[in-house]
Simulated assay, not measured.
Amino acid sequence: MGRLVFLFASSLLLMVAATTVSAAILEHSFYAKNLTVTRLCNRQVITAVNDSFPGPSLRVQEGDKLIIHVFNISPFKITIHWRGVSQLMSAWSDGPEMITQCAIRPGNNYTYKYRITKQEGTLFWHAHSSFLRATVHGAIIIHPRARHSYPFPKPYREVPILLGEWWNANVVDVENQALALGIGPNISNAYTINGWPGDLYPCSQNHCVQNCRHT
């Protein structure tokens, strides 16, 4: 009986080792701060992560553990929500403000820690404080675990596409005005693909090419 128990325990340890051998710990730093960009022929200060709009894409494998240090250098409080990520045993890293955590106040930081478990595909992360999600967002691209195949033929190339909206105004002011008046927020000035409006908006195609400097 003792021999059987020992053999079972040994095989269990081998199984655990096999499932964790391909997992990695990935550590990133997010700096949320002001960024000046030009859209629709207007220069505007927005809140963005790592001087990028949209923010950085996170590329991981199923089973990986993510450690994300968020430093809030912006003038607004902020949290980050990992949309669609199953927070198994890590609900405190989910990110909704005043639900799983207090907001990260300007000048402060917070570290999110969670593991990608039994998930593959493309998700996204975004701010979960006020309308800051309009400019604070990015993709989470989850590849299959090492030595595991895609559930479809492996693509030749991957191009993340993030659809969003753009306001020719500070998005926090847009939300505050709506709350003060008890109505819905102003309609956005443009839809965006990866942070850019299309060429069919007035001034985007002709006037802006000659007179505006894209950043």
Rank of each mutant, 00 (worst) to 15 (best):
H126G: 03
H81N: 08
L66E: 08
T117I: 14
R39K: 14
V49M: 04
W125A: 03
F124V: 05
S74M: 13
I78K: 02
F53P: 01
Q44N: 07
C102H: 12
F53Y: 15
P56W: 05
N34V: 10
H81W: 04
I68T: 02
S57C: 05
V85N: 04
P96H: 07
T111S: 07
M98V: 11
I80R: 00
K65V: 12
I67R: 01
P75D: 08
E62Q: 13
I46G: 01
N109G: 04
F76S: 01
H69C: 02
W92L: 09
T122D: 12
S93C: 10
V45S: 12
Q101C: 04
Q101I: 02
S90N: 14
G55A: 06
I116P: 01
N109K: 11
I104G: 00
H81G: 03
V70N: 00
C41M: 06
F71H: 10
Q101S: 06
F124W: 14
T38G: 09
V60W: 04
I80N: 00
L35S: 10
N72G: 03
Q101F: 02
V70D: 00
Y110G: 00
T111P: 01
Q87T: 11
K65T: 15
T36C: 09
P56I: 06
T36H: 12
S57P: 03
S86E: 11
I68W: 00
E62F: 07
N50V: 12
R83E: 14
T47W: 00
V85Y: 05
K118S: 13
L88Y: 13
G63E: 02
Q119L: 13
N50R: 12
Y112W: 08
N34I: 09
P96I: 04
G121V: 12
A48T: 06
Q61Y: 14
I73A: 14
W125P: 00
R59Y: 15
G107D: 07
P56A: 10
P75N: 11
T117Y: 11
F53T: 02
L123P: 04
Y110C: 00
V49E: 02
Q44S: 09
L123N: 05
G95E: 02
R105P: 01
G63S: 11
G63V: 04
T122R: 07
I67F: 03
W125S: 02
T38F: 06
I68Q: 01
K113L: 10
K113F: 07
G63K: 01
